[in-house]
Design a protein around this nucleic acid. Structure first.
Length: 576
DNA sequence: CTAGGGTTAG
């Protein structure tokens, strides 16, 4: 009976709130009789559980009686194996504060957690403790240390620990191998590979992923063909290599060739199609998956959000929640969902999402926070955006760009420029999106010369302006009445201008009643988007404002003949 | 217990 209760507790996907309720029930019920050790054994044999639920069991154990070092060790290992690295580490620290002598299981798992999260301070302090406890002779602990230092990109220390190991196994060798590849030293890695006494598939795959990341596809394929031992991960590494370097067709042909695939395989392909904008192919593969997991949904939802199909993203998210799929979203899901809401200007959804995050007990991470910064800024709540920005653990180029654009569209050009300066001081390389925000700031305030300077400085930063950047510049020059300069800029474009560019010029011409460039701009807009009535109206207005009534009438008649109705005004701040 | 292949925001 007790076991049954526990089992249903663990196999359900629980929210924090539900888990808390059950937690309380268990505390006052008969589960008090269960021995911690028994519960741990049971947990380790169960494969279908929710990690959140496990955390609560751990707390329950703590309430029942003082758990021993073994129980703590099991818990740390469990969390580390389920991706809950921060929790694993903090549990390890707690265990030590209680004066318990950590097991090698606990130490190696805690080290693994630090390695995965890049927890440098934590990892090094565990290393120091290991010295004190004198458990340095355990292969698992030493290998975990080697891996920690390779992941921290400290190859000198990694090598020192490795060389001092009295006993090494394949895992130790593979760790040092991946360290050399992380340092970009493929030759050294190949040399080490020959030294490994008993190589396994992972050894080969590690080198293969090295070739994949170097970008030499021919060498990668050659190595793959020569590998004496291949498994599913080898194939996945191969197609992931092609995807990363934009060769989606090659990836697909190997995908089709595979006699066996797993979710990793499918997700690599879905993400690959997403990156090159082929939403249709991505969805086709997604539909063919038989057991879609959380990461598959995340990949597909992100695919929609990143390819401007926000409504589809929200639709799929809704399906995930309601259609009995039985998968709980995580922070990754929500980051994409927030992005979709932002594209739709859906503040209502945004605040709903925030309460949803609280309900599920999902930890706010930088990805989600950055998405929220963008959402709040676009809805005019710049203060909220700022406070989220200041709360970020690491401010990277994406966060800065979101904040800069946020300031720009809220008329805070000075703030945007200050942020950009701070970003440069922090040695963060600006990219295309950063400059979109910055140029928008200049555009908003009409600072033509400064904007021009900024635009020209892009190439000094190794960034080539995109069509969108030209569009903003045309808008900036045009609004200032410098229509000829704007036209010259368009003529100098190395790529074909889209309607955003010509439309910006047309709009500027209607602002300044300029027929000469207005006609040229309108002509291009008509060709590119013959079905959009707005361009005809703009040109007709220009004609009318300079008294060329017959031309205006001719254009309006032309519109009627083409059955172009005026598109009703639509604003992104308005909910659909 | 320690190693390779999957999703994340502008």
């Amino acid at each position: 009976m007790l076991v049954h209760t526990l089992k249903s507790f663990l196999s359900n996907q629980l929210t924090i709130k539900q888990a808390k309720q059950i937690h309380a029930q268990i505390l006052i019920s008969s589960l008090n009789h269960l021995q911690p050790l028994f519960v741990h054994r049971f947990l380790l044999s169960t494969s279908n559980y929710s990690t959140i639920a496990y955390l609560y069991v751990q707390q329950i154990l703590y309430h029942l009686q003082k758990p021993d070092a073994f129980s703590w060790g099991c818990t740390v290992r469990f969390l580390s194996q389920h991706g809950q690295f921060e929790e694993a580490f903090s549990l390890y620290v707690k265990m030590q504060k209680l004066g318990l002598y950590p097991t090698t299981h606990a130490i190696s798992s805690a080290l693994r957690s630090c390695a995965r999260t890049g927890g440098k301070m934590g990892g090094i302090s565990i290393h120091a403790q290991v010295h004190r406890y004198g458990v340095c002779n355990c292969v698992f602990v030493q290998t975990a240390l080697v891996d920690l230092y390779t992941k921290l990109a400290d190859m000198d220390t990694a090598k020192r620990v490795f060389d001092e190991m009295p006993e090494k196994n394949v895992v130790s060798w593979n760790s040092i191998l991946s360290g050399h590849l992380k340092a970009g030293n493929l030759l050294e890695a190949r040399r080490v590979l020959d030294e490994i006494p008993k190589k396994n598939a992972i050894s080969w795959n590690t080198i293969l992923s090295g070739y994949a990341k170097m970008g030499n596809m021919d060498q990668m394929l050659l190595f793959f063909q020569q590998m004496p031992e291949k498994n599913l991960a080898s194939w996945n590494t191969l197609i992931s290599g092609y995807v990363e370097h934009g060769e989606i067709e090659s990836a697909r042909s190997f995908f089709d060739m595979m006699h066996q695939r797993n979710n990793v395989t499918w997700i690599i392909m879905i993400a690959g199609y997403s990156k090159c904008g082929d939403v249709k192919s991505a969805r086709e593969l997604f539909d063919k998956m038989r057991k879609k997991d959380l990461l598959a949904f995340n990949a597909m939802i992100s695919c929609y959000a990143q390819n401007s199909q926000a409504k589809e993203a929200l639709k799929l998210f809704d399906e995930m929640l309601t259609a009995g799929v039985g998968i709980q979203p995580d922070g990754v899901t929500l980051a994409s969902v927030i992005s979709a809401c932002s594209q739709l200007g859906e503040l209502r959804f945004g605040s709903w999402i925030e309460s949803y995050i609280n309900k599920l007990g999902i930890q706010m991470d930088d990805h989600m926070a950055t998405a929220l910064i963008d959402l709040y800024a676009k809805c005019g709540n710049i203060d909220k955006a700022y406070s989220l920005f200041h709360g970020l653990r690491k401010k990277d180029v994406v966060a800065y760009s979101a904040m800069i654009l946020g300031c720009a569209i809220n008329g805070k050009a000075v703030d945007a420029i200050t942020l950009f300066q701070r970003m440069v001081d922090a040695h963060i390389q600006p990219n295309l999106a950063t400059f979109s925000g910055l140029l928008t700031a200049y555009n908003h305030t009409g600072l033509v010369e400064e904007g021009y300077q900024c635009f020209n400085s892009m190439k000094d930063n190794g960034v080539v302006p995109s069509t969108d950047h030209y569009a903003i510049m045309v808008g900036l020059l045009g609004r200032a009445g410098r229509l000829e300069d704007a036209y010259k800029l368009i003529k100098s474009m190395p790529m074909k201008p889209h309607t955003g560019v010509w439309g910006a010029l047309l709009l500027a011409c209607s602002l300044h009643d300029n027929v000469e460039f207005g006609e040229i701009a309108a002509q291009h807009c008509f060709e590119l988007e013959p079905g959009t009535a707005g361009y005809y109206s703009l040109l007709a207005n220009i004609y009318a404002s300079v008294g060329r009534w017959s031309d205006a009438t001719r254009l309006r008649k032309n519109m009627e003949r083409k059955k172009l109705a005026k598109v009703p005004g639509c604003s992104w701040t308005e909910s659909a």
